[in-house]
Design a protein around this nucleic acid. Structure first.
Lengths: 117, 117
DNA sequence: ACATTACATACCCATATGGGTATGAGTCAA
DNA sequence: TTGACTCATACCCATATGGGTATGTAATGT
């Protein structure tokens, strides 16, 4: 077997710097492919291929408008990464004491509860 | 060019599920290679190779003791991942309003300031 | 001395990557 | 209709992956 496909999950998709760059650009809002090509300074087919990977893991969505395809961000597939890496936060953050833990947990519970304010 | 080496950075190293699994096991504390082999249920050379990758990106450190090598976690290389993915948190967490932002920033400043309480 | 244990490394293999160029398909303008 | 533009796909290539088996090298045990 070779390495897992880049389209396996967000972990693999996001391992590529160029794809993170694309997501960083899309944070600001929708962008056409040509826009991204210009911003990244690479040939168009390459951008299209990266976008395909991001699409397949659900990190971007497309909207057709004339002959343009407008790509927009969808960060939700990043949540597993965030959740996983968050377990290790105390490892590098020496100042991560009991108070912080409580605050974190409260914040987490709030989010899990959904809309309930 | 092919895909970036797994030893390029933590992003690539951690894209492999088995390597995340190893880190998850090391959170509990030091482990010998044989220990990990047993826990993972794969052949020893494969574990050694994964450990090599993790070592090269600084995610684990080794300590020799007799004929055993005890591996321990070092989470710091995960910080860039955490920092990057954190920007996107508001994307999936619909309940991430202005108050949360302020709290986040305060917390971040505190951490950046280091030990100063 | 010899066997055993613990680990790393050397190979071999199939796979699919990121890069590139060339081409196809759809949309719009003259 | 013809041409220009936007984008996706089809290929080709070098690379190194994750998986495996076989082998080497210390350290311990007898």
């Amino acid at each position: 077997m070779a390495r897992a496909a880049t389209t396996t999950d967000a972990f693999n998709a996001v391992a590529e710097p160029r794809r993170r760059q694309i997501l960083d650009l899309l944070v600001a809002g929708e962008r056409s492919v040509t826009d991204l090509v210009e911003a990244l300074g690479v040939v168009q087919p390459l951008v299209s291929k990266h976008l395909r990977v991001l699409r397949e893991v659900g990190l971007v969505e497309v909207r057709e408008e004339g002959r343009q395809r407008l790509y927009r961000l969808n960060g939700e597939p990043l949540k597993p990464i965030h959740d996983w890496v968050r377990q290790y936060e105390r490892t590098w953050s020496s100042r991560f004491d009991a108070l912080d833990d409580v605050l974190e947990e409260l914040k987490q519970e709030e989010e899990d509860n959904g809309t309930g304010h």
